[in-house]
Design a protein around this nucleic acid. Structure first.
Lengths: 344, 344
DNA sequence: AATATTTGCGCAAACGTTTGAGCGTCTTTT
DNA sequence: AAAAGACGCTCAAACGTTTGCGCAAATATT
């Protein structure tokens, strides 16, 4: 019934050769003759030999596991990012250990500890929205566990990351709205701890100034990304002197919260008040009242790049290249996508 | 810089005792005296000792990894199920190896092979929608790797599974519509390979007959769950002699596709044509035109139960209980949830 | 024909932990 | 006081693989 898997040693004893020869033969080591090599491979195939990964992991002192810590798996952005991470890692025989911080700084810290204990080879992190200290990540580097941040990148120096530059997309977004005739353009931004919030703000300012318009700080408010927070933010904007006719929101969820609330105030979406957002979630395809445009952040690409970088770092470590040249800072340019829905 | 982690042997040599004593002390083995035990634990804490998992995995001949194969991670149902699996597994020191079949039978087979090679201890599977043969799963059992199916459960005997009984929810759904006065109730069902499709059909029939209504087979059509397939199915229903005033759809996506298409035909949703669906996706909260009710399938609970069962099976295996009593068949009753939206 | 080089393989150690068996030493029982 | 038992610890093997080193035989170089 439960036939034990074949081992290298068994193959060796059957062929009356040493285990090391078998190992080398299977790895096409040049010092093994063609005849024995083919004999070994033939028998291995016959016996359905599969290398014992746990033994290899142990022997190599590596787990071939990369940890992934992100806020919320059920968010479409992250699940497609994970999908990319998974695909990329699998191709190089790496396994993905997944964990969600649920956007809590405390949980995030605990997870970092757990990952360390699990001896992951490296870590991919998208930080919780309110994480304010970053010592827990620094400590991992002491253990020689490289970290690559993606998407939610903290504003600290000397880290590897791949992020999406929100500035370009934001400039495009504001320009788009200006072209449509809007002048009072509001922004519901995210928490100030996030790099992306700063970029959005910068993009907003640059676009305004680039069009010889003055920047009105009261039109940019931040929120905590919750439904209630969005309501407050929208109230604030609607109460401002120059009532905006268009609003750029931090992401699609905020946008949908805002749209929902605005409709409850009998504001007609995209005629009285137009929305532009970020993320371009698939659920937008099902909606009736949606942002007129959305800034795509390329989650699959981000996940892929981040994993590539991490695997590269792990190889560097292998090669004992103590001085890795520099920090990877991959920036993907965001891109405004106009929302072309059917007639809905 | 890269301080190597402490090992049991190091602790042993510092205290001038044997490694086995240290190991036993840390595990509170009764044969170790109180004094040495506390000495060991104290030093272990000081040196920040963390057991080398790879060594333990290797030694125990287990990977402490459970594989998860599911169709699509980005579907909200599965991502919350994975969330549950992850949580449950982590508590027992298990790691989750994730893979997506993208609803392809071929990919699924390849993944099963990969999982075997990775020596996962057990497998959690939700099958691809068109998987028709199941030998690839059977072969794993020969290797003593237990499988627990969840949600998308194949219709084959002698398997462990946790599923959601769609019959009850469907009966509730049809009763609900009947109560609202509908008489011509259509159903857009899923592929016939899925157990859940049969259950929905059964529930539909039982509800009709239970209300002394005759069952009209032309009102139940199946579709492949794609947008185009949904259109076809809806066309078919609309063309039938008794044009339905309400439709029960296989899941929320199908429902939304159908609603989208129906609106394009100028059919007024929930007045001309009411929809009831399954899954109760969060995105429903953002929609304007949604099903009036949805059958909840409890993804978190399913993931949790399935993991519990798998871990239990793994323990049985440990205890060399060759004859495991029987097959786990956990069935969670689905439940109709009325869609109480604000004024939207 | 003698020396140098290559080719093909085996030996043994190493990775860190767990665990059955063994063995002194101290305490208890008769 | 001798036998029996409990206690506390050590020894050594085992898990499967990789890899530096060494050694013989075959081949190539003078």
């Amino acid at each position: 019934m439960s036939s034990k898997p074949t081992t290298i040693t068994e193959i060796a004893s059957i062929l009356n050769i040493s285990a090391s020869t078998v190992s080398r033969a299977l790895h096409d080591h040049p010092s093994i003759g063609l005849t024995t090599r083919s004999k070994v491979k033939k028998l291995a195939k016959e016996l359905n030999y599969e290398p014992n990964q746990t033994a290899i992991f142990f022997q190599k002192g590596k787990t071939y596991t990369i940890g992934v810590i992100l806020p919320e798996l059920s968010e479409s952005f992250f699940s497609t990012a994970v999908s990319a991470i998974e695909d990329t890692a699998y191709k190089k025989n790496y396994t993905v250990l997944l964990a969600q911080s649920h956007d809590s700084e405390l949980t995030e810290k605990q997870l970092v500890e757990k990952m360390k204990n699990h001896r992951v080879d490296g870590l991919l992190v998208s930080v919780a929205k309110n994480t304010s200290t970053f010592d827990h990540f620094r400590s991992l580097e002491k253990y020689n566990i490289p970290i690559v941040f993606f998407d939610r990148v903290p504003e600290i120096p000397d880290i590897h990351y791949v992020g999406c530059n929100m500035e370009t997309g934001t400039i495009e977004a504001v320009n788009y709205l200006l072209k449509k005739g809007h002048r009072a353009i509001g922004m519901i931004n995210g928490p100030k701890t996030l790099l992306a919030s700063g970029q959005r703000r910068e993009g907003y300012i640059k676009a305004m100034i680039g069009n010889r318009l003055k920047f009105d700080p009261s039109l940019v408010v931040s929120c905590d990304l919750t439904e209630d927070g969005t309501k407050e933010a929208l109230n604030e904007l609607l109460a401002s002197k120059r009532k905006p006719t268009a609003i750029v929101t931090f992401n699609d969820y905020v946008s949908l919260f805002a749209i929902k609330y605005a409709r409850s105030l009998n504001i007609s979406i995209n005629t009285d008040l137009a929305f532009v957002s970020y993320a371009n979630l698939p659920l937008i395809n099902y909606m009736d009242h949606t942002p007129v445009a959305s800034v795509e952040q390329f989650p699959y690409l981000q996940g892929q790049k981040a994993t590539d970088i991490l695997l590269d770092l792990l190889n560097q470590k292998n090669l004992k290249t103590q001085e890795h040249a520099a920090y990877y800072r991959i920036i993907i340019e965001s891109q405004l996508i106009e929302n072309k829905k059917g007639f809905l």
